[in-house]
Simulated scan of single mutants.
Amino acid sequence: MSKILITGGTGLVGKQLQKKLEEKNHSVVVLTRSPTLKNEFKWDISKEYIDDNAFKDVTHIIHLAGAGIADKRWTAKRKKELINSRVQSANLLFKKIKDLKIDLKGFISASGIGYYGAVTSNKIFTEDDAPENDFISKVCVEWENAAHQFKQLNTSVTILRTGIVLTKLGGALPKINTPLFLAALGTGKQYMPWIHIDDLCNMYVKSVEDVRFIGIYNAAAPEHETNKSFTKKLSKTIAKPIFPLNAPSFVLKIVLGEMSSILLKGSRVSSVKTSAIYSFIFTDLKSALKNIYHNE
């Protein structure tokens, strides 16, 4: 049994992950700004503070903390927040682990497929490909660099470059499934790498339990879907009509600014490396959506 400290443990993925880890008899503690439960401990990144008690007997850290990429318009202030919430938090964890001389077995960090940039191309990106040079890519590069520093402490590092997480409890699906209808965005030809939340959480569990599961992996299902095909399959699953006209790109750009790029662009990412060590439960979108909406 391992003891895992989770940052971002009160978020969408964090809550589900806690349950899965505890079902496997692992002990879990969570860092939060406002602890209320027995297994929650206070941290304040701006004040560089973490309760030392949070680290007692910890063997692994799963770093999920980070401001939501698509929650707010990307102003200069918001861009800084998106980076700092990921990087400064990891730096603070590194400092504490080093100062407390904790023999940490693994540091497991979230990242995003945004590493490859907000681009639409015929290329299928693998973990060995270089990053793009746009803002979303820069966020992921700095995020991952902050994780890699744990190697200095002889700690294994695993990074999961995550696609769109599918669950009806929050995240992307409820935003796509608007009250009146569904609509493709822009040309609809941009790809939407996705992953069912159960598969993502299982990968984090595996990264704790399997010493081979280290390095960088694309956390995205094997099946590739464009925005148009994704919308059609979602429409069929929930029996809701698709608006006959696509949402115009220029409208999204006006409303969302630079952030619209992550909705209007997208390429395929490879799951070959991931599939060699992890067996996906949901390999196709149809089965994933049926499970989410109909428990099938």
Rank of each mutant, 00 (worst) to 15 (best):
F250R: 11
F94V: 02
S261N: 02
A54D: 05
N53K: 14
F181H: 00
C140S: 13
L173H: 03
D99N: 15
S89A: 15
A221N: 09
S271N: 04
K206E: 08
D71S: 14
E225V: 13
D134T: 09
K175H: 03
L180G: 02
S260G: 00
D57W: 04
K206C: 07
T178Q: 08
A184N: 05
P244Y: 03
F55Q: 03
D71Q: 13
D71L: 13
P241N: 07
G171Q: 06
G11H: 13
S229Y: 02
G186W: 07
K175D: 01
A247C: 07
R268T: 02
F150V: 06
M203Q: 14
P222L: 12
I242W: 01
E23K: 15
K3Y: 13
E40M: 01
D199L: 13
C201T: 15
N122L: 08
I61S: 10
I69T: 06
K42F: 09
N84H: 12
K80G: 14
I108D: 12
K290P: 06
L12N: 13
R78Q: 15
E223F: 11
L285R: 07
A65S: 09
L245P: 02
M192P: 06
N145I: 04
M192A: 04
K80C: 06
L264N: 04
S111W: 12
T36H: 14
Q88I: 10
G117T: 09
L37F: 03
T155S: 03
P241Q: 06
K240T: 05
E81G: 13
F41Y: 15
G9T: 10
Q18I: 15
I254M: 03
L182I: 00
I214M: 14
T59Y: 05
N145A: 08
K151T: 04
N84E: 15
D52T: 08
S275N: 03
V87S: 10
N53F: 09
I164M: 07
T126N: 05
L169C: 00
T126E: 09
C201V: 13
F94E: 11
P248H: 07
Y115A: 14
T237H: 08
I62G: 01
T237V: 10
G186M: 00
H294R: 00
I113M: 08
H60W: 04
S270D: 12
W43I: 07
L21S: 15
T155L: 00
F213I: 00
A90H: 09
S267C: 06
I197V: 14
K77P: 07
E23A: 14
S229T: 09
E40Y: 04
T231V: 15
A172M: 08
I4W: 12
D210R: 14
R268A: 03
R212E: 12
R161A: 02
K265H: 04
K105T: 11
Y293H: 06
G117A: 14
T75D: 10
A90C: 11
W74K: 03
S249M: 07
K240F: 00
D128I: 10
S89W: 10
F230I: 03
A110C: 11
A221C: 11
T75C: 10
G14L: 13
A147C: 03
I164A: 07
S261G: 04
